[in-house]
């Protein structure tokens, strides 16, 4: 496991469901009942069509690395990435439990949860193991 210390996220009334679900081991995305599209990060009002009729849905937790970079100068080094979820939206995260020299764009990854300084569960991704 990484020794990396994750700062706590700022949480507000628009996003507290996301973070509570993370504590239960679930990755949520917001979807819009009006236009049918998912978006990330989650908002009360759909950034695509402006509808307030948005709803939480559980993501499969699977996705692919859209891009990444290993911060070599940090101690310990860490891999920041944008991960495109099966649901079609791309989110920032870190890639963990991986050989940083063998990461690649389009690599299949799956969600797992780390802990922030203050004990909040934080969605992270590792190379896909299932299937």
């Amino acid at each position: 496991m990484s020794d990396r210390i994750y700062p706590d996220p700022t949480i507000n009334l628009e996003t507290e469901c996301y973070w509570q679900a993370a504590n239960d081991g679930k990755l949520l995305v917001k979807s819009c009942n009006a236009c049918g599209k998912a978006h990330f990060y989650p908002r009360a009002i759909c950034p695509e069509c402006g509808s307030p009729d948005t709803t939480w849905t559980e993501a499969t937790g699977r996705g692919r690395i859209y891009t990444y970079s290993v911060m070599r100068r940090a101690d310990p080094p860490y891999a920041i990435a944008y991960v495109t979820l099966d649901e079609g939206v791309t989110m920032m995260s870190n890639i963990v439990e991986a050989d940083f020299d063998n990461l690649s764009v389009d690599m299949a990854v799956e969600v797992m949860f780390g802990q922030t300084e203050g004990g909040q569960a934080l969605p992270l991704f590792r190379p896909a193991r299932g299937i």
């Binding site: 700062p7 940090a74 920041i80």
Partner: peptide
């Protein structure tokens, strides 16, 4: 902020 800062 909450969806980016923790990831460095």
């Amino acid at each position: 902020r909450g969806f980016e800062l923790p990831y460095g």
